[in-house]
Amino acid sequence: MINFYSYYLVKCGYLLVKNRINIYQVAKYNLEETLEGIRRNDLNVMQFVYKELYSGIQFFVTSNSGSESDAQDIFQEALVIIFRKLTDGQLKVTCTFKTYLYSVCRLLWLKQLEKRKTKDEVSIDNENFIELTEETQDVIRQSERYKLYQTHFKKLSDDCQKILEMSLEKTSLRRIAEIMGYKCEKYAKKRKFLCKEKLVDEIKKDPTFKELAK
């Protein structure tokens, strides 16, 4: 019994500390600081955003025919899109961050519903939202494709990932052979090509690839 309570008190202690940090910083962060934090891939800021705004998105998705897992995907993708736009210097937010994030999530979920042929509108809107530009929709489409490519890239063996990365960083074949312990440049060249073919092949076999190509 003592252990049980100790365990939960520990967990409570953790949450107390952590939540209070969050509340303190959320209160401190304005829109610009939040965006800058995301741009810098700042874990604290991302954690605040997650803790403060995820439940609203989860409610929205699960109230509109989605699961918790769908909500998680949508929330993450929305943040990736915001991150992409921030790093490209494209993002101009004229509303609150909450409204902007909700608007991106809403659009992503509408697209998902359309793909699933469930319906093309949401019945419950629990936040204000804005209409997003065509430019943002392009970023969304690009992000979907790149996510697929990156997912399969990460499934490659470590040496394949390394070879492809090095060759794209313009490392010479001789150097790649040295680093990877291959006997000659020719073999490095062959491995590079085989790795790339394996990657492209896996991407093409993924049903999502065909969906995205439509």
């Binding site: 494709r145 790149y146 490519y149 990156q150 890239f153 492809l164 990365e165 794209l168 960083e169 790339k196 990657l199 492209v200 991407i203």
Partner: peptide, 9 residues
């Protein structure tokens, strides 16, 4: 193939 390269980077 171009996009895949960009995605890897």
């Amino acid at each position: 193939r171009l996009e895949v390269n960009k995605a890897i980077m």
